[in-house]
Computed example of a mutant assay.
Amino acid sequence: MRAVIVAMAVAIVLGASPATAAADPGASPLDLADPSVGGLDPALRTAVQNAATAAASEGVTMTITSGWRSPQFQQQLLDDAVVTYGSLAAARRYVQTPEMSKHVIGQAVDVGGTGADQWLDANGSRFGLCRIYANEIWHFELATDATGVCPPLLPDAAS
């Protein structure tokens, strides 16, 4: 139990969700006490909360697997990706630098829950939410234009 508490405390300091540290599939979009939710830009947070409510009415549970991240946590994710993918160039396809990450400024969210990413991909523009990268079905940002249309997908985070 002590190890779980320590992991959660470290996660909070680094900007990760304590739910993620405890191997939970994600935080409720309504859980403002979770830094990954509470640290989101208010407009994005409201859009995700509204989308999650609409999804729930259709039987789809949406969670936030990653929202706001500290620069230190973002750097750790990038460092881990370099090890996983073998180079900075390969890692950058999946993980932005802290200086470029929309997560660090609270303007990006990764969603979880069975079917939530597909639901949001099909319905997110109603809430201003758009999938940004072709290789990340879970990553969304407020990005619709004035007519409510999402921009074309970028191939990956390095684009």
Rank of each mutant, 00 (worst) to 15 (best):
residue 1 M to F: 08
residue 5 I to S: 10
residue 5 I to Q: 07
residue 5 I to G: 01
residue 6 V to N: 08
residue 7 A to H: 08
residue 8 M to C: 14
residue 9 A to P: 01
residue 14 L to E: 10
residue 15 G to C: 11
residue 21 A to E: 10
residue 21 A to F: 08
residue 22 A to I: 06
residue 22 A to N: 11
residue 24 D to Q: 10
residue 24 D to Y: 11
residue 25 P to L: 09
residue 28 S to Q: 04
residue 31 D to I: 09
residue 31 D to L: 12
residue 33 A to L: 15
residue 35 P to V: 12
residue 35 P to K: 12
residue 36 S to K: 03
residue 38 G to L: 11
residue 42 P to R: 10
residue 44 L to E: 07
residue 45 R to I: 03
residue 46 T to V: 13
residue 47 A to P: 01
residue 47 A to W: 01
residue 47 A to N: 02
residue 51 A to W: 03
residue 53 T to E: 10
residue 55 A to H: 03
residue 56 A to S: 13
residue 57 S to K: 07
residue 58 E to W: 00
residue 64 I to E: 05
residue 64 I to A: 06
residue 65 T to L: 03
residue 72 Q to D: 12
residue 73 F to L: 12
residue 75 Q to C: 01
residue 76 Q to C: 06
residue 76 Q to K: 14
residue 76 Q to W: 12
residue 76 Q to M: 14
residue 78 L to Y: 13
residue 79 D to V: 08
residue 80 D to T: 11
residue 81 A to L: 06
residue 81 A to G: 07
residue 82 V to T: 10
residue 83 V to A: 13
residue 84 T to G: 00
residue 86 G to K: 04
residue 87 S to A: 04
residue 90 A to D: 15
residue 91 A to P: 04
residue 92 R to C: 12
residue 93 R to Q: 15
residue 95 V to P: 02
residue 97 T to V: 08
residue 102 K to S: 15
residue 102 K to I: 00
residue 103 H to C: 07
residue 106 G to N: 05
residue 107 Q to P: 00
residue 110 D to S: 07
residue 110 D to G: 13
residue 113 G to K: 08
residue 115 G to P: 06
residue 118 Q to A: 15
residue 119 W to L: 12
residue 120 L to M: 15
residue 120 L to N: 09
residue 123 N to D: 06
residue 125 S to N: 14
residue 129 L to I: 01
residue 131 R to Y: 01
residue 135 N to G: 07
residue 137 I to K: 08
residue 139 H to G: 01
residue 139 H to A: 07
residue 142 L to N: 02
residue 142 L to H: 02
residue 143 A to N: 13
residue 144 T to P: 01
residue 145 D to G: 06
residue 146 A to L: 09
residue 147 T to R: 14
residue 147 T to M: 08
residue 149 V to Q: 15
residue 151 P to E: 08
residue 153 L to W: 00
residue 154 L to C: 04
residue 154 L to E: 13
